[in-house]
Design a protein around this nucleic acid. Structure first.
Lengths: 201, 201
DNA sequence: CCTCGCGTGGCACTTAGTGTCAATACGCCT
DNA sequence: AGGCGTATTGACACTAAGTGCCACGCGAGG
């Protein structure tokens, strides 16, 4: 019975399961023994698969951790498109940034440990910033579209850059305070600083 | 005659020589065959040393390239301290950013090729951004000191972030245009955008 | 002449990451 | 029920990054 709800095949769910198991094992071990103290073999074995299989799911050791935060990037992009076009840039961007940030802060303290791991491990931080470049491009493209600017205008990239700067500053503060500070309130304060530049069309 | 000007020992100059040779070989080969098309063995052999010696000068393949641009970071910091304290933040930061940028643009087209290599190679770009984090910290600390702000104020980090955002935007444009656009003029335009936020103390 | 210190090369080793192949399990079709 | 194509996996081998170790050579100074 039940066979094949057309949506998610059994194979797909198995794949997801392995992926989750791998992520779980990786976060556990990395948080425990530090980035350089764990080998991929160890992670794979803990998850019950071979090293080779690990690399069929993730491109690198950094990827397991960073991909865990990929939602934030897509979340920002989604939130920005959802914002009414008439809204001033500072408000639209502030929401684009603060919604995923609040999401992250809400999602248990596992998120906190992951963020701390990333910000304190140079190799991870580097990959994280690299990933943000895509967010940067996305946000810039959307801002250009939203404001109907020429593709060679400097404003969109700068606006996206400022928003991400605010994002990173808030994230850092949140991480350093062990989640004691409220990310939404921090985001408000950060955008109060950069808003004059964002809205001075 | 000549022996031992007490300043630079012969050994030190020999060290510098090897380092230069290595950098030279690396930039040459990497620009020619791409980041993944060259092995460290190849670079070392071209420079006339062993692989083992390479790692006594650079921590990684990325390092050879990125270290080539380290001057820009220190240049920004130096330039910022040199600026009069009464100067508005936007002007001080603009100069801190544009001076090293102009330096770089002036220094032959070798700089252009290096920048293009970095911006187009994910692994290099990641390391470059990581390096910039130090610049970020430096600039933020100086801005905090310059304005006499509390160490937990958000402004310094945001201001430094905006300045680096402008820097990156300009660098990207300069690189994509094959150095056709003038970095100083681009920097002016970029800072015209972000200045309202920088100066609204 | 001797030796002390430093830079170097060679070697072995661990680990990241990739290509290949054979075995297996699943889904589908007859 | 049986057979076939496809996707996933483990095992093995291999390249390359990066590190530890040791022995050699060379210049400086006693």
């Amino acid at each position: 019975m039940v066979s094949t709800r057309p949506e998610v095949s059994l194979a797909q769910r198995k794949r997801q399961l392995v992926s989750d198991e791998l992520t779980e094992a990786a976060l556990q071990l990395l948080a425990l023994k530090g980035f350089d103290g764990v080998t991929i073999d160890e992670i794979a074995t803990t998850a019950g698969v071979s090293k080779r299989t690990f690399f069929r799911y993730f491109a690198s050791k950094e990827d397991v951790v960073v991909q865990f935060l990929t939602d934030m990037g897509t979340g920002m992009s989604v939130e920005l498109t959802a914002r009414p076009g008439a809204e001033p840039p500072s408000v639209a961007l502030k929401n684009a940034v603060s919604v995923p940030l609040a999401d992250c802060a809400g999602h248990s303290d596992r998120a906190l440990r992951v963020v701390q791991l990333i910000l304190r491990t140079p190799a991870l931080h580097a990959r994280f910033l690299e990933r943000q470049e895509q967010w940067h491009d996305d946000l810039a493209a959307q801002m250009a579209h939203r404001l109907g600017l020429a593709p060679d205008d400097l404003y969109p990239r700068l606006a996206a850059g400022m928003a991400l700067s605010a994002f990173n500053t808030v994230l850092r503060r949140w991480s350093d305070s062990d989640s004691a500070e409220d990310p939404v309130e921090l985001t408000d304060r950060a955008f109060a600083v950069i808003a004059p530049a964002l809205d001075a069309v």
